[in-house]
Structures are given as C-alpha cells and as structure tokens.
Design a protein around this nucleic acid. Sequence first.
DNA 1: AGGAATTTGTGCGTATGTATC
DNA 2: AGATACATACGCACAAATTCC
Lengths: 243, 243
Amino acid sequence: MTTVDATALRNPQRPGPRRQEVVAGIKDYILRNRLKPGDLLPTEAELCEAVGASRSSVREAVKILSALDIVEVRHGHGTFVGRMSLNALVESLAFRGLLSGEEDHHVLGQVVDVRQILEQGLAADIISVLDDEHRADLSTLADEMVDLASQGRDFLEVDRAFHLKLMEPLGNDLILQLTEAFWQVQAIVAPTLRTEPEDRLITAQRHRAIVDAATAGDPEALRSAIADHYAPIRTSIARAVQS
Amino acid sequence: MTTVDATALRNPQRPGPRRQEVVAGIKDYILRNRLKPGDLLPTEAELCEAVGASRSSVREAVKILSALDIVEVRHGHGTFVGRMSLNALVESLAFRGLLSGEEDHHVLGQVVDVRQILEQGLAADIISVLDDEHRADLSTLADEMVDLASQGRDFLEVDRAFHLKLMEPLGNDLILQLTEAFWQVQAIVAPTLRTEPEDRLITAQRHRAIVDAATAGDPEALRSAIADHYAPIRTSIARAVQS
DNA sequence: AGGAATTTGTGCGTATGTATC
DNA sequence: AGATACATACGCACAAATTCC
C-alpha cells in the first residue's frame, strides 16, 4: 500500500466548480478519517484519482487549504494536516491595514481598539489567575523593555512576549492566538507610522505600570494601566491622520 | 490598451518558491497602484507576462489570495481586489472546531468564551452609545426570538442580527466583523451538539434580559445578563464532554 | 436573439527541484 | 552516493462563463 487509503474521498456530484469540490472533498477526508494536525494526507496523484480531478484542480484546492493552514505542504515530503493557526487572519487583516494606511490609519486604530478591549475585558480574570511565577516573568519582561527603550533600541519581541504572557495563564488557546494575531497585524501595519523615540520609552514604562496594577490586584487600576499603555500609539495615529 | 498597466509588477530575484513571489508581486501591485476593493486586476495572461511566471503558478497564487479574500475571481469576467473579509478566519476556526468536536468541544467553548469576553468587555461602551433607536431595534429582535422559540422554531438569523446590532453603534468595523465571524463559527460548529428545545427558549429570553439591562444603563447588570445568555450553551458543551 | 471575443476553469504531459532512505 | 518518492513549475489545448456587439 501507499501512504493512506485514499478511496474514502469520493463525493457524489456537487454542482459547484471542480476546485471547490476538491476543497470540500479533502476537508471531508480529514474529518472522516479523524486526522489530527501533522498527519499525512494522500499524495497529489492519489487525491486526483480519489476525487476524479486533474492535478491542476487538486493543486489549486490544496493551495487554498494551505492558505487557511488546514493543510501544510512540505516540498518533496508530502502534504499534512495543518495546525489551523490564525495566519490567514493576520495576512488578510494586515493587508487591509496596509491598503487603508499611508493616509488614514483607521484599520490600525481598530486593531488597537480590539487589543485594548480584549485585555481590559480580561483584566479581572487575569488578576484572579495570576500567580507569583507569572508575575515575576511579566516583571522581568517589563524591565527588559525599559532597558532596551532607554538605550534607544526597539523591543518588539519582548513586547510580544509580554502580551502573550499576560494572557497565558487564562488557559484559552484561542485568546492566546488572537492576541498573537492582532499583535502581528499591528507589528506589520504600525511601521507606516513614524514613532517618536520618547513615545517608545513611555510605552515601555507603561508595561511596568501594568505589572504593578496586576500585582496590586485592582481590576480598575489594571484597566486604566492598559488604556494608558495604548495611549502613545493612539496619539501617533491621530497625528498621522491630521497631517 | 487592455484593462490596466501590468508592467509595474516585476520584482527582482527573490529566493522563495515561484508561487510565493507571484503572491507578493500581486500584493505589491495592488498597493503600488492604490487599488481599492472591487477594482479590476490584470488578466491571468498579463500577470504571467508581468511576473515572468507560468499560468499555473499565477493561478495558484491567485487562489491563495482569493482564499484570504485579498482578491476575488469571477469566472469569465476577471480578477478583482477583494473585500478582505474575515472569511478566512471563519473557515479556519470552524474547521478546527469540527475537527476537535464530536467528542470534546473545547474549541467551541473557547469561541463562546471569546464572544462573551468581547461583549462583556464592551458593556460600558455599549451603554454609553446606545440611543433610543438602537434600543427599540434590539427590543424588537428580542421579542421575535422569544416568539420563534416559543413556537419551537429556530431563530438563527434573528440571533445573528441581535448580536450585530448590539455592536453596531460602537462604530468599529473590525469589532463588527469579528462578532459576525465568531457567530458564524459557532453556528457551524454548534450543530454537532444536540440542544434541548427548553435551552433554546431560555436563550431567547436571555436576550430580552440583555436589552433590559442595557436600557437600565447598569454596566454590571449588562455583564451579568450577557454571561447568563451564554450559560445554556456552556451547559450543553459540558454535558457533551461528559457523555 | 445570437454569436464572437474575452477571461477564467480544467486536464494532461513533461521536466525539474527537493527531501528521505 | 544513488535511488525513490514527492512536490514544483511550465506550456498547451480545450471547456465554461460572461460580456458585448
């Protein structure tokens, strides 16, 4: 036998375009066989035979599924079930932001809004699940950010780690991935703004304030600290819109 | 002349796979020419010539971009700039939910968590921007839901309209689209649960309570009403996990 | 109404690059 | 290092859908 049984893929006559039948067929195949991320799929040739379509159609369908991270293609190796990450959300939103940017940065502003809403909305939960270890980690990250910022260096990766660490103890993968996704969108779109070095230092220090408020256990103070943390980029956006 | 000038697409030697160069090239083309959603792109043949790739590669690249709704292909008509909706998020998340479902519904649970967090996190803002017209609309929708539920009929579309209406006055397109996206994911994944008719009636009535709390202008009461509204589906999920 | 032109959709054959054993 | 299996890329021919004359 080959890699897997590919005969369970055939689906009766569906009206739509060929390529979309293949997309649905591959999805059905994954569901029917209870495949998990990382599992191997049939080869292109086997998929062709199974669904009765040509390589072109199968390839285009696989490309659509890979764009959604439903499958993952490794050149010369095979096609595997993907991790269904939110990369597609990042790609789509980031491009929308780049397209609307350059003049009016309203998409970037909306992303900042959502990030703030999520973190503020979770303030009470964050406090209630925060333990000493996470608090220490956050504190270290905040200190690193202030150090880097005071040296005039950027602290992108530390900032990313901080916001992920803040959400981590909640134990909700989706929230973690949304946090990551919106952070990435902002990281891609924000460079179209010119940011003042002073603002960067202020932003770094505001992370320190977030840790302090969380440590104090005051949800209202934490919500304020989070809002303050996003204030510099909001003013940057407002400044860019005026000019 | 043809549709547009396609000669501004060429991009010098990039290391990656051919198809990905084409993806980047088409993105650059859209950005460089400041195209907006709905604008026409060059034909496949023109794109091939512009980027120096074969039609197969161009087509696969276009399919990737169409999966992200960055472009939209209309058979026999042409390729256009897409609306960059969050369909990709829905597809990816919904499939993840279907894959994890059938036994443990933890993805569905996380989606419910996020929906609740967003609505609760925005409770105060919702109250502060709510005007009489929106309140009346929400009230009508809630009544419709109770009517339908008491007749044993489903009220999917009304439910969708209600949650969108709740977010609408905030004036943030992204929040609106995220609300829509998560609602759709839940609508796709939730049918793998068997829901009791009683729960549906209770859910309908809880929308009435949300409107009342928002009208009263009490943020804390609104947050409670929102949490209560998601309680039935949470118990359905918990019940399914046990069995 | 009808048919030609344009554009995307599909199928197939072949050659090449790449990873694994 | 060689062999095998696989995805990648290219080019052409024809089908299907849409538009326009």
